[in-house]
Design a binder for these strands. Structure first.
Lengths: 97, 97
DNA sequence: TTGAAATATGAACAAACATTCATATAATTG
DNA sequence: CAATTATATGAATGTTTGTTCATATTTCAA
């Protein structure tokens, strides 16, 4: 029997879904799905402006969907955990049928 | 190797995630997760106004996340398919840790 | 057919948000 | 240091969206 989760959980769920539910951010998440990549690489692969990608990376980071590390002047982003992967897979399956 | 899905798929994914990413709609989805329920029952369990619930049910219906059938003056809503269940489970797991 | 119960719809509004443009900061190299 | 490359930040803006209030529609019973 699945009850409605409490407010705290629901709010967290809402936040995760909200962050994932954007065209540009979805593209970014896929871009860094298999290996971490620098911002400039992400910009290329996603095909959006430098500013937009940077802004959206910040949104993803604030929501803990991605993690970063620095190498010289470059910043590398990767998915924060496996849940993000699972989420994308489930949603993609739904979208593909 | 996971490539970035094409525009059509991404747009569908974005739509599904968008529709799911709302506090009221999440509550509604959970309310009808195990069995279909009438709008009045959903209103009670979700604890939102009649108008709001009705508006959000329409959003869920337009996006094909729920299906309906009528019995007299009552309208019953249920989840449209199993993907919605899986999606909620994955997201809830992420939110609960 | 009048009334009541259940659901849907439309207008209105504030709040949130994606994107762009311009500018700032940080690190590296000559 | 100056110049350049990589990334971040902030303001501005047009659009979308969640919610409320008021009203409409539908179905059934008396």
């Amino acid at each position: 029997m699945s009850e409605i989760p409490n407010e705290k959980i629901l709010t967290k769920m809402e936040e995760l879904l909200n962050v994932a539910s954007d065209y540009t951010r979805l593209k970014i998440l896929y871009a860094i799905m298999d290996e971490d990549k620098s911002v400039s690489t992400i910009i290329e692969e996603v095909g959006a402006s430098q500013s937009l990608v940077s802004h959206q990376l910040k949104v993803l980071k604030r929501a803990n969907l991605v993690a970063t590390h620095k190498e010289g002047t470059k910043v590398f982003y990767k998915l924060a955990d496996e849940h993000v992967n699972s989420l994308l897979k489930v949603v993609q399956q739904h979208a593909e049928e």
